[in-house]
């Protein structure tokens, strides 16, 4: 019961969705399954939210290390939830969009969420510098290729790169760094990218077949769970 029912569900749902591509009368069923997928995914998000609350409450009750920061996390979570669910400060009625200008939800999104997320990613610029140092040591032929490609792309996107090779005559314009960067992206880079994409495509097909046929069962966890 614990393992057989999920395996049957996976087989039936997977098979129906594949058949719905080829058999027009099954298209409706396939569309419904896609909607179910979206609805279940929302509950999975709620589960994630519930889990976040549980973990941080546990941290607070056990007075674990840095438990004070759990209060900040939970306040941020509940304030955002309340602002969105009750549409606090929304200029229109309750039916208006949650992201309407002037709402508290939109204000927190603009003044807290966007600056924090973009600064978090911007912070990586500094750590990329140390990663570059490690990557840009030409230890062998492959590392040299990576180094040269990265340098050409970096220089090609800056005015410095344009200035550096502006003396190259027009008849040899392919050797101007910006043009070289464009060629690199549209030819050798495209080839490697396509090889990766085709590899991913074939990998997805094989893992999907393994899941549908019940050969891959790790997602079920162990029986004691």
């Amino acid at each position: 019961m614990k393992r057989l029912v999920p395996l049957i569900i996976t087989f039936v749902v997977g098979t129906v969705l594949i058949l719905s591509v080829f058999i027009p009368p099954m298209e409706g069923l396939g569309e419904n399954f896609t909607l179910f997928f979206d609805i279940i995914a929302v509950f999975a998000f709620f589960l994630g939210g519930g889990n976040l609350v549980r973990v941080h409450f546990q941290k607070m009750s056990r007075k674990s290390d840095d438990w004070e920061f759990s209060i900040v996390t939970l306040v941020g979570f509940f304030v955002m939830l309340a602002a969105g669910l009750f549409k606090i400060g929304n200029p229109g009625d309750i039916a208006s969009s949650v992201t309407a200008d002037g709402s508290l939800f939109q204000a927190i999104y603009r003044s807290v969420f966007v600056p924090l997320s973009s600064t978090m990613y911007a912070l990586l610029a500094f750590f990329v510098a140390s990663a570059s140092y490690r990557a840009f040591r030409a230890k062998n032929r492959e590392a040299t290729l990576l180094l040269v490609a990265a340098f050409i792309i970096l220089l090609g996107s800056t005015p410095f790169g344009t200035m550096l090779t502006s003396w190259v005559p027009e008849s040899w314009s392919i050797f101007q760094i910006p043009n070289l960067a464009v060629w690199l992206m549209s030819s050798p880079n495209l080839a490697g990218q396509r090889a990766i994409i085709i590899g991913i495509g074939l990998g997805v097909v094989s893992i999907s077949l393994r899941l549908i046929l019940g050969l891959e069962r790790t997602y079920l966890g162990d029986d004691n769970a």
């Binding site: 969705l17 399954f33 997928f37 997805v204 893992i207 899941l211």
Partner: peptide, 17 residues
């Protein structure tokens, strides 16, 4: 595990094609 199996089956069926 039942809804999880549904998600896994739907993902496999949708993404395979």
């Amino acid at each position: 595990r039942w809804p999880l199996a549904f998600i896994v089956g739907a993902t496999a069926g949708l993404y395979m094609m």
